[in-house]
């Protein structure tokens, strides 16, 4: 007996998807309209979208403190990328170990639980005092912020695995701990681990701004801070828009990677 592949009704999909593709543009349009209305009262304090856009174009052509707007974006992104990369390399194995081994959970896991409730921003003064205000301290700050969600999610992902999958592994020749870990536990936890990486990315974007606002000569946080110091509202808002765009791009990128890595996960 053979079963025929079912075709999803494309007609049905089309009918609803067009409407849902238009809606986001409408709501974003509304946001810009409200911005216009609000900004007309005092352009010095609340510049119009036009002014901010023109400022961004100007910033992209002329360097400010050695970089164009794109350059500043690049500097911030590089800091995020390096720290995030380190956090993934260290955080995923750490979280997996905490979730997999009772011994590690009882020791390192306990320490982690103690540190976890301290908000990341509270670490910044300590980092500045210990590591100064150079590149190193920024990387460490962002790394710390990204590490927490990655470790926590990796750990939870491992803990949440259905015992059924482990039974399946054992009944189908995954006889060593390593085989179980590699072929059952890690793939089963991958979507949760990835959710942690996504959280870590937004944490990293937040902390890179904070770190750059404290002391930096480049980066989007620096731009925003410089704007504040000289009361240049359109510069501040240019930085804000740029960080929003950066965040959105990074989100698109992580979603893309996740879909490539976990093609079976429909929730993406």
């Amino acid at each position: 007996m053979r079963i025929k592949k079912e075709k999803i009704s494309t007609e049905y999909k089309m009918k609803y998807s067009i409407w849902y593709h238009v809606l986001p543009f409408l709501s974003i349009g509304l946001l810009i309209a409200v911005w216009y209305l609000g900004s007309s009262s005092n352009p010095m304090i609340f510049p119009t979208p036009n002014t901010v856009l023109r400022r961004m174009i100007e910033l992209s052509q002329n360097k400010l403190s050695g970089y164009t707007l794109i350059g500043h974006m690049g500097v911030s992104l590089l800091r995020v990328a390096v720290s995030l990369g380190l956090a993934i390399i260290i955080g995923v194995p750490l979280g997996v170990l905490i979730g997999w081994s009772r011994g590690v959970r009882a020791t390192i896991g306990a320490v982690f639980e103690c540190i976890r409730p301290i908000p990341m921003l509270a670490w910044i003064p300590l980092m500045v005092m210990w590591f100064g205000i150079g590149e190193k301290s920024k990387i460490i700050m962002i790394f710390m912020a990204a590490l927490m969600p990655i470790v926590v999610n990796s750990y939870t992902g491992i803990k949440m695995i259905s015992p059924l999958y482990l039974d399946v592994g054992k009944m189908f020749n995954a006889s060593t701990e390593w085989q179980l870990l590699r072929s059952i536990v890690l793939p089963a936890a991958l979507p949760t681990i990835f959710a942690g990486i996504r959280n870590a990315t937004s944490m990293a974007l937040m902390v890179v701004l904070a770190a750059e606002m404290i002391a930096a000569r480049a980066g989007l946080g620096f731009l925003i801070n410089r704007g504040m110091e000289v009361f240049d509202v359109s510069l501040v808002m240019s930085g804000m828009v740029a960080i929003g765009v950066t965040g959105a791009l990074v989100a698109v990128l992580t979603n893309f990677i996740e879909r490539k890595l976990c093609p079976w996960n429909r929730s993406i």
């Binding site: 059924l164 039974d167 399946v168 189908f172």
Partner: peptide
């Protein structure tokens, strides 16, 4: 050879990879 009540298919593997899981291990 166990056929599980709740199927216990591994969601991250294709049909072929699920079926060949045992021999692969």
């Amino acid at each position: 050879g166990m056929v599980f009540q709740k199927t216990g298919l591994l969601p991250w593997l294709t049909v072929m990879d699920n079926i060949t899981f045992g021999p692969r291990q």
